[in-house]
Design a protein around this nucleic acid. Structure first.
Lengths: 242, 242
DNA sequence: TCAAAAGTGTTATGCGTACACCCATGG
DNA sequence: CCATGGGTGTACGCATAACACTTTTGA
């Protein structure tokens, strides 16, 4: 196959992170303000180049997670979204970026890591609804990440990654509602979630003060693949087919 | 973030292809015999390095599809599986491979492309059931590809990519049975498939000779996302939870 | 006329949904 | 005792699975 003197072209490898969390019942994504060209001053996903030839790609994602988001890597869902490598995606040269999806529970004050001074949580709908621009092809990466989160909420226990160690069922419901962007019936959700074997487990009652009747607390169950799945109601499908 | 004189390390970018098809009602994958080190003589997925710095990754996958499998790139489903980049996956150096899943309809004689002399279709179960080894991390890539095909059969019209331009419903059923590895009721399948709007459309009757009553012919419909999904029956889930 | 595969009807069951209703707590 | 959110009961409709049955062809 190969010619005698032909050599494959080298490329630069980067990682980009779609870090999602829930803040005040809305889905937010962590973005940084770029300090250097290209796209200086624009919003971008946290990320960066592979540190050295021996670094594993997932390890690089974890490293950027600490450096740029100041997030504790342990107990954090991290999952590959795919490779993005259009020849013209980075004006500096041929850069292929491997994108990861990270899910963080709601955090008190997540801003300002060690080196990215201008990291902040922004509502995803400001970017998926066409408005604000992002550097490189990060707009597409973000959309892919949100879509993956949406479908994984159906088939995996990903939703619990948005929650703390213990959580109430209505907290879990707010995750589903925020990511899917639609309202769910609390009473049916309550039973449906508990009907999936191994999804959530009762936790020791350590109720927090609240208005209304205190809710029972739960924790993640052992099962990661949900059977049966939590199917989202069809969005208002006005046009059946064409 | 960056040091003044630090430069990101270059990597080599490869593509690998999981090309699936159906032969005599069983799922097969296209494998080549490696002609050079490393893993000389071992079976491997078709693939190769990026040709030059300007080549798009998907284009490289299409090129390898033609070169190694001699498959017409047009009308062929091609989809990214993910990036595989463990530091030690290739003894020659740091190679990151972007894997693609390709689905081909049953072909008369698919062997022997232009340069890979020893390409052949092998039943996937010989490799997923632990037995035969594959070069590099291709065993894992193959498993990921088959799993992706399985779940996409539920939610997308991927199954029609295994079929020719026109097909019968029982041909489509054989696709589902081969990929999922379980039997389906022909009568319920018959109606279920037709109940999904836009999945399959009636084609001009051009019946082929067969034993028994000739079947109606169908072609792909416009819809790629199936609503409702074709849910596979739970596999014999002996252990409920633990 | 028989075998084989395609296609249709019918029924029981289970699940999702909607919604009425009761429970427990803070103010 | 009232507002607020947590939790339970239940009925209805629809999707599915199971399977008896009819149709259409080749041999």
């Amino acid at each position: 196959m190969e010619e005698t003197s032909w050599e494959p072209p080298p490329v630069l490898l980067a990682v980009d992170l779609v870090i999602l969390t829930l803040r005040s019942s809305r889905l937010h994504v962590l973005l940084v303000e770029r300090g250097i060209e290209p796209y200086e001053g624009a919003s971008a996903l946290p990320g960066g180049f592979l540190f050295d030839s021996g670094e594993d790609i997932r390890a690089a994602a974890h490293r950027e997670l600490s450096e740029e988001a100041n997030l504790d890597a342990s107990r954090l869902h991290l999952e590959q979204l795919g490779a993005y490598g259009s020849p013209d995606r980075d004006p500096r040269g041929r850069v292929v970026s491997v994108a990861y999806l990270a899910i963080a529970p709601g955090l008190p004050e997540p801003e300002a890591g060690t080196d990215a001074s201008a990291a902040s949580w922004l509502p995803v709908e400001e970017f998926t609804s066409g408005r604000a621009p992002l550097a490189f092809d990060h707009h597409r990466i973000l959309e892919d990440g949100v879509e993956q989160a949406r479908t994984e909420l159906e088939h995996t226990s990903l939703a619990t990654a948005f929650c703390n160690e213990t959580f109430t069922i209505s907290e879990l419901q707010r995750v589903y509602e925020a990511v899917w962007g639609q309202q769910l019936d609390p009473r049916n959700f309550y039973r449906k979630v508990q009907a999936v074997p191994g999804f959530i487990l009762p936790a020791v009652s350590d109720r927090r003060p609240t208005r209304g009747r205190p809710a029972r607390l739960f924790r993640r169950g052992p099962r990661t693949r949900l059977r049966p799945p939590m199917m989202r109601p069809d969005p208002p499908t006005q046009s059946e087919e064409r």
